[in-house]
């Protein structure tokens, strides 16, 4: 496994940095959500705070997505890792990026207000795993037995 790619510590450092970024993105949220009162108009300061936070979320989302794409691309383009490892890393980075985009662009989070959407997405993920996983297992098994 000692290919021309970077050493293990360097790789680990890279994953650590990525994880940190993601953690930052997920932790950006209101310090204390204002009590939901249907009639009260939020104050100017609250609107301004919301505004800043939203802008920051988009910015972080874009930055993270960019970084993750570049990383995956570089892994393959400059052959930083052996194909099997690189493949796993590329898929992993892709998955992380999907999560980042869901959080920052599609505004799905684990707070109460997004529960309906979140549950829907989690259920869909279950079905996707069943369908895609099942299809791959069955058809690769068939291929192995028939080829």
């Amino acid at each position: 496994m000692s290919g021309p790619g970077p050493s293990l510590p360097r790789r680990l450092a890279r994953y650590g940095a990525a994880a940190l970024w993601v953690a930052t993105a997920f932790s950006v949220r209101p310090a204390a959500a204002p009590p939901a009162r249907r009639t009260a108009r939020p104050s100017k300061a609250e609107i301004a705070a919301d505004r800043r936070r939203d802008l920051l979320t988009y910015g972080i989302g874009y930055g993270l997505a960019l970084a993750l794409t570049l990383l995956a691309f570089a892994l393959v383009y400059w052959r930083w890792a052996e194909p099997p490892v690189a493949l796993a890393l590329v898929f992993g980075l892709g998955l992380v990026q999907v999560l980042v985009q869901f959080r920052c662009f599609l505004h799905i989070d684990f707070k109460g207000q997004a529960r309906d959407d979140l549950l829907l997405i989690l259920f869909s993920t279950l079905i996707v795993l069943l369908m895609v996983g099942g299809t791959l297992v069955v058809l690769f098994n068939l291929r192995a037995r028939m080829m």
Partner: peptide, 18 residues
């Protein structure tokens, strides 16, 4: 109901375990 579809084609040739 999403976990049983293969019983419609038991005879297709996949392994006995599946």
């Amino acid at each position: 109901s999403f976990t049983v579809w293969l019983h419609h084609f038991f005879t297709m040739g996949q392994s006995a375990d599946i």
